[in-house]
């Protein structure tokens, strides 16, 4: 059964159709990439899936259960976690407390403190554990957001540009982290502008353009798709 099933999601904003009948599935242990030009509707889709925005039409299911009418907190309790493109850290809390708030909201709150320490170690953030999250550089802040989402032990993880602001070696390490998260059985949906990373780690890639999915398939298939080439490079 798919961890996430989005079907026919439509969102209109001020007369514009930001999303137009979008379908998307993500399975456990797999990394699904979502790419497309700026303004294609990727972040809006994440808002719909995580319950921050009501779609005008369509449905969202988690593990086969229709959650379209549930609020964000209820969906989180069904095992969904996400990061935000425009960072939404708890700026006045330390990095450790950011993760701790999440872990204590997760399924295993009794061992939250120990789990957070382990997670900080896994992400290589021990040295920042006591810094206030509001004072981090963009790259580190994005990593903390990923860590905070992981701290609730999600079954479905939505990552919105987690690698922006990282340099080459950092991206390599991040790719390894993503693979290990998927190997634990988590379904990952990755929105990312670093196409190299997407093509590298994803099992499947969906391409969104002007609110519609214009292509889906393996990275190899997508990179040869005529419609994708046209969307990115123009039809010549």
């Amino acid at each position: 059964m798919a961890s996430l099933e989005v079907s026919g999601v439509t969102v209109s904003y001020g007369g514009n159709r930001v999303l137009d009948g979008v379908d998307l599935t993500a399975g456990p242990g797999r990394i699904t990439g979502l790419i497309g030009p700026n303004g294609a509707g990727k972040s809006t889709l994440f808002d719909v899936v995580s319950g921050l925005r009501r779609p005008a039409a369509g449905r969202v299911s988690l593990d086969g259960r229709d959650v379209t009418r549930l609020g964000p907190a209820r969906r989180a309790r069904h095992g969904l976690a996400r990061t935000f493109q425009r960072l939404e850290l708890f700026g006045r809390l330390s990095v450790r407390d950011n993760l701790l708030v999440a872990a204590e909201l997760g399924p295993d709150r009794r061992h939250a403190a120990r789990a957070v320490t382990a997670l900080l170690d896994r992400l290589g953030l021990e040295h920042l554990a006591d810094s206030p999250a509001g004072a981090l550089s963009t790259g580190a802040a994005r990593l903390v957001e990923v860590g905070r989402a992981l701290a609730v032990r999600p079954r479905l993880l939505l990552l919105d540009e987690p690698a922006a602001g990282q340099d080459g070696p950092e991206t390599e390490r991040f790719a390894a982290l993503l693979r290990s998260v998927a190997a634990d059985g988590t379904a990952v949906v990755l929105v990312e502008h670093d196409t190299g990373l997407v093509m590298d780690v994803c099992d499947e890639v969906h391409v969104l353009d002007l609110g519609k999915v214009i292509a889906a398939g393996t990275p190899a298939q997508v990179s040869r798709d005529a419609a994708v080439l046209a969307a990115y490079l123009g039809d010549a």
């Binding site: 990275p219 990179s223 994708v228 990115y232």
Partner: peptide, 8 residues
């Protein structure tokens, strides 16, 4: 094309 879509 190489830059945006790369190759796996």
């Amino acid at each position: 094309s190489a830059l945006y879509l790369g190759s796996p």
